[in-house]
């Protein structure tokens, strides 16, 4: 048994092991918790849109012998008639390594990909010229400054496209909160939907910004202001200033899919607003729950070896708020 196993790997050498590693990783986020092992848990339904969008490897991860998912019903409803989008969801990937269309960038570990930008049509961020140069410099020489690596909560829309599943809760109450909680880095957003205004002054900057929402028909519209300049959209160091303003639209299409679109504007960095879009699909893993995610505790190569001062970064002159 042992010999056959290793022959599988070493015989087909690279491809075999690459596929194995990739498969194992996809399965990670789909597998049910161990407490189910004793039971006859049905296999997870095929996941649409999971994982990266590069190299044609994406889409239709259909394992052998699985029952097809039943057709999705209509959008579920709360007692007050608003869409009930509670449950666990997975964001379609494609923008995690690079939010924009890109060629392969080996030394920063980014493969060629289409990204998730739908406007402009070329799929690239409409950077002002100085900003494009800065992005190249950041990605090649300043990886250390990525805020995720230092356990700061993510910005918007990066947080929505996070690699793990996320939970949506809609507690009762006049605020109509839509609460989103990610396993990844235990990020969360608390979005009131009662049309309340932003009250934070412009001088206050938060990593995740300040989300204020309202319903337009079945679409949850979220206006996000007051982000700081410290977060990137992806691994390729695509960045923004603290003037960034994002308007998101979460439109449930059926009970298992939400169409997501975000319009991003930042007159300091871009020549025009731009849009990203992807699908968010219900995580069908039986009894899936978010687990605790300790952000890099105990991983010394990130928290200790790669601190900003140890890399020569002047922490007194970090990007302006």
């Amino acid at each position: 048994m042992r010999n056959r196993f290793f022959t599988y790997f070493t015989g087909s050498a690279f491809m075999g092991s690459m596929l194995a590693a990739a498969a194992a990783f996809t399965v990670f986020w789909m597998s049910s918790p161990p407490e189910l092992r004793a039971q006859d848990a049905p296999p997870a339904a095929p996941q649409g849109g999971g994982g990266g969008g590069r190299g044609g490897g994406k889409g239709g991860a259909k394992g052998g012998g699985r029952a097809p998912a039943p057709p999705a019903g209509p959008v579920r409803r709360l007692a007050n008639g608003k869409p009930n989008i509670q449950g666990y969801w997975k964001a379609g990937g494609g923008g995690l390594f690079s939010i924009e269309a890109t060629d392969a960038r080996k030394q920063i570990g980014v493969n060629a990909g289409k990204g998730i930008i739908t406007d402009p049509a070329d799929g690239k961020i409409p950077y002002q010229p100085w900003a494009r140069e800065k992005e190249l410099d950041l990605s090649e020489n300043h990886t250390i400054e990525e805020s995720d690596a230092h356990c700061y909560t993510s910005g918007i829309p990066h947080m929505v496209e996070a690699q793990s599943s996320f939970q949506i809760l809609q507690p009762e109450g006049s605020a109509g909160y839509v609460v989103m909680i990610w396993e990844y880095m235990h990020n969360y957003r608390i979005i009131p939907t009662d049309n309340r205004p932003h009250v934070l002054p412009a001088s206050v900057h938060l990593f995740a910004g300040d989300p204020k929402g309202h319903w337009e028909g079945d679409t949850l519209v979220v206006d996000d202001t007051n982000q700081n300049a410290r977060t990137w959209y992806d691994i390729a160091a695509n960045f923004h200033s603290d003037q960034i303003h994002v308007v998101e639209r979460f439109t449930p299409a059926d009970e298992n899919r939400i169409a997501y679109e975000a319009t991003i504007e930042d007159p300091k960095v871009y020549t025009q607003p731009w849009k990203v879009a992807f699908n968010i699909t219900r995580d069908m893993t039986p009894n899936y729950r978010n687990m605790e995610f300790s952000c890099w505790e105990g991983e010394h190569d990130v928290t200790e070896k790669y601190t900003l001062p140890s890399q020569g970064v002047d922490t007194k002159n970090l990007p302006k708020k």
Binding site: C151, L200, V204, H205, L206, F207, A208, N228, K321
Partner: peptide, 23 residues
């Protein structure tokens, strides 16, 4: 809820910008 993002090695065990701001 605002943010207290805490980062020990970079900025010491203190709050970062935007936290505890009383609007």
């Amino acid at each position: 809820i605002l943010e207290n993002e805490c980062n020990y090695k970079q900025e010491g065990p203190t709050v970062t910008e935007g936290t505890r701001a009383d609007p």
